[in-house]
Design a protein around this nucleic acid. Structure first.
Lengths: 335, 335
DNA sequence: CTGAAAGCGCTTACAG
DNA sequence: CTGAAAGCGCTTACAG
């Protein structure tokens, strides 16, 4: 039950003023070595730690940053968070986590809270709904309140803020070219996120790589049963020899359909998915995937936010940083 | 650029005192309806919101709670967090997230921070290392500082705190009995977490169900290659007809080895794993699993913490709440 | 070298 | 009904 000791109590015990104690603990040159030592000794004895709330009030800052996550079950975002947290830890900042569950309504509530002065800055990946509706008023309200804002991952939004993204387009451009260079003829693409920004970019990369020379084979739908039908058609009718999947759902669906249709991966069908390592390497056969380096996305976002907070960037000019993906080959792309 | 307006500024604009403004905004009966209205109107116009840091200092609380997570890539913990966050949101509390990465050293640092008064209470699942070493001094220091503490998931620790767990033992007892009742003879168990609390409990459930009547078939190792060998031996030499897996790693390894050894699931081998739905239902064949209801673990932990904070529990007496698991049958246990 | 004072932004007993 | 004062726990210019 060592209830926290305050400066005032320390001062009384030492028979000096609160100011003296405070200065001594901050190694102020104003204080004599002797009293400085006395103060520090007693402070250590009582394990004194300044009340962070009081310090923050005095400094007019909070020492915390807010992170908005659309969906924490998505391991990409979970790992982004871990990158953010690691970075914050080094800088002794606290991370307040908010989960929007892909809902714009919830996102609005969160942004509303955030403008009340709970945090020094905000990292956000906007919800799918927000992207669909393209309503960004709540984000602009953060900007209006001068709360530094960094968008991560879902950055295809016209708003004056720093951004950290993933090179979605290039990842699929490269992956498609990988197959082209190996002489694969029918290359298909499956997507359950064709309607959102990152989905569009990945599809664009695929289309650019094909560049009219090869026929496109697309299976896109947000409805699982629809998507299943379309992928099945790609595999059995179009007989694609390679399939790129833009997201977890389509990836898993594709491996599933191949299994059901008795199509051997990788001998008859090469597969590349957009999923995390934890799952990719444990599928049967193990699945080649595009690694997005989520931890780096998180730490980069945090780094940019801190630079912004420390005034290292010019106001009105914004950073946009893109983290390179890598194509990790496991069994499903063996030739 | 609407920089935040303060009570003082509001007061000046209205030509009243700060106290009057504060009271008016809190619907104090001391204030005349007329001024109350004037104040509220201007407050709304300027979108006034009390500075939470100041309010917290005044109230001597922080309005935030700290959550310590061993490993956020584990979807169980990610979903626990989402349960916590949802509950916190309703109560208008902030959730500060810390990730220990299963390291006791990091956990100590976190607990040290937490004793400085950053949060009103703490929810923690201790790291594996902490469990192994059984060093809980840092947890006791939270207790010493009178910071309410709720352990979740990993609760097999002798410490005066509230706890929310999962009925690990019963889950495996029931699962094993499920097979026994169907006349399955050789029932095996695979584990990569046999050395930690929850692993031990699951194994215990299995052993109790077998109760000497049936032979045990255990494959346990923390070394992937070791575990692989042992599971393979279970499947090919012991020829188990059913296999229970205590964790993600052993579950995936088992499906993998069955595939490689050309053992058909579920006709030749029934499988039950301890993994999340997202992955379970997308494996091939889909994998029956034990659902732990992580979101409920999180919201229950939060509920207990809030009750504790509100003084609804007797000091010195602690709650222990167990969330029931359910066995979800997918393809891998079809008879 | 030390301490009194002001102030961060708020709330609330108390006086008028 | 309104406002001055004290105080939450701290920091820091300023006076002595």
């Amino acid at each position: 039950m060592k209830s926290k000791i305050t400066l005032k109590e320390l001062a009384k015990l030492l028979n000096v003023s609160v100011s003296t104690v405070s200065k001594a603990l901050h190694d102020s040159p104003e204080i004599s070595p002797k009293t400085a030592e006395r103060v520090k000794e007693l402070a250590k004895l009582h394990n004194y730690r300044p009340n962070p709330v009081a310090v923050n009030l005095k400094r007019s800052k909070t020492g915390t940053i807010g992170v908005v996550i659309p969906n924490i079950s998505n391991s990409f975002f979970a790992r982004v968070l871990s990158g953010i947290e690691a970075q914050a830890q080094e800088k002794n900042q606290q991370v307040i986590t908010y989960i929007s569950n892909e809902s714009i309504e919830r996102e609005r509530q969160i942004c509303d809270m955030l403008t009340s002065g709970l945090v020094d800055g905000v990292l956000i990946a906007v919800s799918e709904e927000t992207q669909k509706k393209q309503e960004y008023d709540h984000l602009f309200s953060l900007v209006d309140y001068d709360i530094p804002l960094v968008l991560y991952d879902r950055i295809n939004i016209d708003i004056p803020a720093d951004k950290v993204g993933v090179d979605d387009e290039k990842s699929f451009f490269d992956a498609t070219n990988y197959f082209i260079s190996r002489g694969v003829k029918n290359i298909g693409l499956a997507s359950a996120i064709h309607h959102v920004g990152i989905g569009k970019l990945r599809i664009k990369g695929y289309e650019k790589a094909l560049a009219g020379e090869n026929e496109q084979h697309l299976a896109c739908s947000t409805v699982p049963e629809e998507l299943r039908k379309k992928i099945k058609s790609l595999l059995t009718k179009d007989k694609v020899q390679a399939l790129l999947c833009t997201d977890f759902e389509s990836t898993i669906l594709a491996t599933r359909i191949a299994y059901e249709e008795n199509i051997q991966v990788p001998s008859q069908l090469k597969l590349i998915g957009y999923i995390g390592r934890e799952v990719a390497e444990f599928l049967t056969p193990s699945l080649s995937y595009i690694e997005q380096h989520p931890v780096e996305v998180g730490s980069k976002a945090m780094e940019i936010l801190n630079n912004r907070l420390e005034g290292n960037y010019k106001p009105g000019q914004f950073k946009e940083s893109i983290i390179a993906t890598s194509l990790v080959h496991l069994e499903s792309t063996k030739f």
